[in-house]
């Protein structure tokens, strides 16, 4: 095991897959030598693998995504990067109409083994066009796998699984986790899709959350423990496929559930999780399921506004306290 940042662990995963499989290549805006990715994830890879395999592109999101589709169906394993998750709006046709539907529309004649990496979330005061959390749109689009690792120890194993997956995989990262450090295995490891991880065990309340909210949920759980409230924290790690069992088992144990993400509340992934749990574990619930989300507004710029917008530890703690 070696302690390293999320960024480094992700880069190691990309590097290992590029060494293992010459079909794997990276493309996106500023991923190459001059910049190494807006968040420096691919820094150094162009020097190592060359400009052909770490390919800078024009600012053409729809064609970046579409080119990844075309390359994937003809024998390559593209890892395309959309610099900010907000800009995936420009590539929606290729992601949702082409990548997601091709295998189905064509009756299984082809598959689309691509990875599309992008970054979500607020906390950097970069306002409405660089801070959103849009994962629900894609969870609502059949045909896409979705991984959203929040920890260094997961990101390496998940990017490797994503690259080897025969389906289109959306790989969502969060801006505030790149510098977070954890022990990461030195030997090769793969994390299967659809396996949640219990990040903290507890008996009274289950918190299900994603991305940076998991870090806040763990902080909240630590403090609540001092109050005598035992919280279990579940990280799904992939939204599609979704590990229902780990969550339902936990809910059956605790009888209480708080779901927390950084998305705006209406139609968020938390709504889907809450609906699923009440359908499948209603009899085990001792309290209403509480959603903790951002308000239904664009992400604001000014620090006090943004801090108000993004769910914080206190809101998570209040939600837990309200149902115990």
């Amino acid at each position: 095991m070696t302690e390293m940042t999320y960024r480094e662990a992700l880069k190691q995963g990309l590097r290992e897959e590029m060494q293992r499989d010459e079909r794997v290549f990276i493309m996106g805006e500023d991923v190459g030598k001059n910049w190494g990715g807006a968040f420096k994830v691919t820094k150094g890879l162009a020097e190592e693998f060359g400009d052909e395999r770490v390919r800078d592109t024009p600012i053409s999101e729809n064609t970046i995504a579409g080119a990844a589709v075309g390359a994937a169906i003809t024998g390559l394993r593209p890892v395309a990067e959309i610099m900010f998750g907000d800009l995936i709006t420009l590539a929606m046709d290729q992601v949702c109409n082409q990548a997601a539907k091709m295998r189905y529309m064509f009756g299984g004649q082809t598959s689309v083994p691509l990875v599309l990496r992008t970054v979500f979330g607020g906390g950097k005061n970069i306002a409405s066009h660089h801070s959103q959390s849009l994962e629900a749109w894609f969870m609502h689009t059949p045909g896409l796998k979705i991984a959203l690792p929040a920890f260094a120890s997961d990101v390496k194993g998940l990017i490797k699984t994503a690259i080897r997956n025969p389906n289109p995989v959306l790989f969502f990262e969060h801006k505030l986790v790149y510098d977070k450090k954890e022990e990461v295995p030195d030997e090769e490891y793969l994390i299967p899709f659809g396996e949640a991880k219990v990040r903290r065990e507890g008996a009274d309340v289950t918190i299900w959350g994603t991305m940076f909210m998991l870090h806040k949920a763990l902080d909240a759980a630590e403090e609540l423990a001092k109050e005598g409230i035992s919280v279990e924290v579940i990280d799904p790690r992939t939204l599609v496929p979704l590990d229902k069992k780990t969550l339902l088992d936990s809910v059956k144990k605790t009888g209480r559930l708080v779901v927390v993400t950084e998305e705006t509340k209406t139609g968020a992934t938390t709504a889907e999780i809450a609906a699923m749990v009440q359908e499948e574990a209603f009899d085990w619930l001792d309290a209403p399921i509480i959603r903790v989300n951002a308000p239904d507004t664009p992400v604001p710029f000014s620090p006090p506004l943004e801090q108000f917008f993004i769910p914080d530890k206190k809101r998570i703690m209040d939600a837990v306290r309200s149902i115990v």
């Binding site: 064609t63 589709v69 075309g70 994937a72 390559l76 109409n97």
Partner: peptide
């Protein structure tokens, strides 16, 4: 592929051609 979205085939052709080249 044949596509119901006008102009959506062009990016896919770019990727397929890139693939042929690489």
């Amino acid at each position: 592929g044949a596509t119901g979205v006008v102009a959506s085939g062009l990016p896919i052709a770019v990727g397929a051609a890139l693939s042929c080249k690489m």
